[in-house]
Design a protein around this nucleic acid. Structure first.
Ligand SMILES: [Mn+2]
Ligand SMILES: [Mn+2]
Ligand SMILES: [Zn+2]
Ligand SMILES: [Zn+2]
Lengths: 149, 149
DNA sequence: TAACGATTGCAACGCAGTTGCATTTGATGT
DNA sequence: ACATCAAATGCAACTGCGTTGCAATCGTTA
């Protein structure tokens, strides 16, 4: 049984993490790769409506993908998780991200985030810098919007 | 029936918004004012355990306070809402926050976050800086932990 | 103090996410 | 190709957050 060509790369990705290349994982990763924006749990269920996945399995696949560093999970102001395939997201804690308020996509910014000064006794382990706004594809430079002060 | 002096100001605040100064609202606003950090729904319930409030009423009071502009609501990466009295946080978006991985508390850092450089066409509206680690109360300076690189 | 709308408490509900467990299946070795 | 076995899945049940409808209560104003 041979794998469709557009899935072999994803299968290798999974196996390289010591995990099995199961249909559920390949379908989810494939849906994320094909998406032009970050997808919510419901978005993914809808995208896979042709070959329905068990609700619980989707939760577990997403948890695995995030823990494995294959997928980046973001939270919006309304507490919706959104998932995006990130080849480079292994080290995504080390750089800043741009979140488009319109399309929900996440872009990696190569700027390094400087650590703010800590109060005495506080231990900083990680700094997340998230810039919110509108991406170029969504017309970020529209003149009626005010940029950062 | 006279109001405790530390509540009259909050009562005026509520009435100025065209709302009634009820015990539930005054207790919640008071708890938020006394807190040195942003409080979750559970935090507030715990803080008011002396005069228990109905779960639903707390939801409604918080919704009202946020809609009225008295309280600022933030969301962390684990989708926990945290509420803080607005007086202190008009410029909440302008400073960084520290999240303790152990106790979950959020602390305001007075450092101003510098905006990273944007790619062409991208419009930045807001920068969120969230430092993660361990707070002083949780033993942040333990030697076996590695600080930020 | 009476009146009335705003607010509360309670019960019931819907839904997101989790857990336990029996069954299936991908990978590995023969 | 086949056997093997841990990994992964599907299903059912469960937990907990947040919401809704409604009757009872309360704050405000006259
Ligand atoms: Mn990244
Ligand atoms: Mn703050
Ligand atoms: Zn966009
Ligand atoms: Zn702590």
């Amino acid at each position: 049984m041979s794998l469709p060509p557009q899935l072999v790369e994803l299968a290798q990705l999974a196996r390289a993490r010591g995990a099995r290349a199961t249909p559920a994982r390949l379908q989810v990763l494939s849906a994320l790769r094909d998406a032009s924006r970050a997808l919510s749990h419901h978005d993914i269920e809808a995208a896979l409506s042709a070959q329905p996945l068990d609700r619980v399995t989707l939760y577990r696949v997403l948890d695995w993908a995030v823990a494995a560093g294959l997928v980046l999970r973001t939270t919006d102001e309304n507490r919706i998780y959104r998932y995006s395939l990130g080849a480079r997201h292994e080290a995504h804690a080390a750089h800043a991200h741009f979140n488009c308020d319109d399309c929900g996509r996440v872009f990696c910014l190569d700027d390094v985030a400087p650590a703010p000064a800590m109060p005495a006794g506080f231990l900083a382990k990680r700094v997340d810098v998230a810039v919110h706004g509108r991406c170029a594809a969504c017309g970020g430079c529209a003149t009626h919007d005010e940029p950062l002060p």
